[in-house]
Write a protein that binds this DNA or RNA. Structure first.
Lengths: 337, 337
DNA sequence: GTGAAAGCGCTAACAA
DNA sequence: TTGTTAGCGCTTTCAC
């Protein structure tokens, strides 16, 4: 019925252990033997039994992707990362499982422990905002489970992938400045998220470089959600001297800003320019379409998983890869009125 | 280190086999013995090793969720289903893996076979549109892999969950009729998707019941994407006698219709009413917010997985569960001009 | 109702 | 460089 390693060994005229060596790319096999075994595997369409492998070898060939589905309004972001992680795992014949965890819940660590003792993942991929949740990282190190992160805040000794969000934010604000805007507002994301901090810092950097003093009334707190964008914008548009442009820390909030503009009878981009960050599918579907920063989430997930796998498989060592950003200039930004 | 079944047996003063019986809810254990074993498991925080279980027992305790990420523009839909499936699997201590497959690709079946022989899932959950892809179903039956579906077209002998989409579509068109609309257009989804057929049928049923003859010019083909909605609407709005309301077969297309309305200088809902189907997060973020049909995707994923699991675990038999729909009346629909 | 022995398919440790 | 032996943690089969 099922082709076993032993069957391949018999066919290739070697011992089971040698087949195992070939299967695991171990040393100490001559090239000719290796080839002979490979041919036999191919011919018999041999598929190693994952449970037998992990039981005997004490490794699971499993990568778990951890995320917080509470603090992530834009689930397309996670879906794209997941796609990328999956692609990388598939390519290396690892399997992947997904694990929602909520930082706000008291049983975060208990659930993490359950994951580890139930499934024994060889490593995990962390997504914002849990990339920097200290109790999590501590527990992973104690349990000796390697991890790679997408957009981690602390970057020393961390594997994964990042983008220079601060530079990207600065660039998009400079785009507004170049259009002649001077009263530029910013809607901040959830406090303590790395993304919020970087994007705010980029905004400040651009404004300062243009010689503009920060008007505290123009910097308002949001929470990455559409509703928080609406609320923030209502505040901004009620100001006696309202902004001519709003840079929201993500696309969902930018959408909320555009909604609020409608409520106040302001035309985008004629009366007010609006831009966001992320380049979610939504941003292209709005009218006018949203100027934003492209984040290649899928690619980032793939890279993070690859770094983890290269760490696990011992080929050299995983790194923290930095990828470039790109601005998507669309209809929601125009010259200052 | 790790607590094994044998350790539990020793503590409870029984044989390993008896612990195994308790673990698997088998018969032939007295209640007192069962209780004693349970207590020992609890006390030692025993976690069975999944690989050992599946190697010895020839089952994987694994459910795979299959989807086509090609034909699914709204990935939040899949993400929500996934969340529900995961919840159900967790509750029954099954693990879940996700598997993108593309009907358009030639290697669909090869990739399915790879999934089966690599991971041996005990069952799979199917999502639209692959719920009715004949070669897939055939292969699953041959390989003896049970499946449950979300919104399958063929419903005889199928496990899973469904909603009466035709009635829902009829209801939303009746809402437009009640507002005084008579020239109501419909934008169809991808041909052959069950969703497209049901929603079109509901539209026709409502129009016919209102005594209105179908105007073929008002029924146009789309493809579930934003862009296809724009294109369809441009055609409709160019008509000499344009519709006063448009029912698009999903929210993404409805968004495209709203975009096109802007291009033609038409105000929604003043000049034209627009409604969709699905109640994606997007639908609440538009301005005006979209009238649509709520589909509880997460719940549907959970129910489908539960039906599969109840089939797998032999507790009675899985069924095809029908769940109710609900209309979300928002700002994009109003009285006919 | 319960237990003893054998073995699932693979790899670790050691030997040759 | 290659093979042998033992065993991973559980379930099966079959005996009691």
């Amino acid at each position: 019925m099922r082709v076993r390693l032993e069957d391949v060994a018999r066919k290739a005229g070697v011992s089971p252990k040698t087949v195992s060596r070939v299967l695991n790319d171990e040393a100490n096999v001559t090239d000719t033997t290796r080839e002979r075994v490979r041919a036999a595997m191919e011919e018999m369409d041999y598929r190693p039994h994952p449970s037998a492998r992990s039981l005997a070898g004490n490794r699971s060939f499993l990568v778990a992707m951890l995320y917080d589905n509470n603090d992530n309004p834009a689930s397309t972001y996670l879906a794209e990362i997941q796609d990328g992680v999956l692609e990388a795992c598939d390519a290396h014949r690892y399997s992947m499982m997904v694990r929602p965890l909520r930082m706000r819940d008291g049983d975060f660590i208990r659930r993490l422990d359950a994951l580890i003792s139930d499934h024994h993942p060889d490593g995990v991929v962390l997504t914002p905002p849990i990339t920097d949740y200290a109790p999590l990282l501590k527990r992973l190190r104690e349990a000796n489970v390697p991890y790679a992160s997408v957009s981690p805040v602390r970057q020393a000794k961390t594997l994964g992938v990042r983008m220079d969000e601060q530079q990207a934010a600065r660039a998009i604000v400079e785009h507004l400045l170049a259009l002649g805007h001077r009263r530029i507002a910013h809607v901040i994301g959830i406090a303590n998220h790395g993304a919020s901090r970087w994007r705010l810092a980029g905004y400040r950097e651009a404004m300062a470089a243009a010689g503009l003093d920060e008007d505290p009334a123009l910097v308002v707190q949001g929470a990455f959600t559409f509703a928080s964008g609406v609320e923030a914008a209502r505040h901004l548009f009620s100001l006696p001297d309202r902004p001519t442009a709003v840079f929201a820390a993500n696309d969902d909030m930018a959408t909320g800003v555009m909604w609020a503009a409608g409520e106040y009878g302001l035309k985008v981009p004629h009366d007010v320019s609006v831009c966001g960050f992320d380049d979610t599918p939504l941003s292209r579907q709005l009218w006018p379409a949203l100027t934003t920063v492209q984040q290649p989430s899928r690619e980032m997930g793939k890279i993070a998983a690859e770094q983890l796998l290269s760490e696990l498989r011992g080929h050299g060592t995983g790194k923290l890869v930095q990828i470039p950003f790109s601005l998507q200039i669309r209809g929601s930004t125009a010259a200052a009125p």
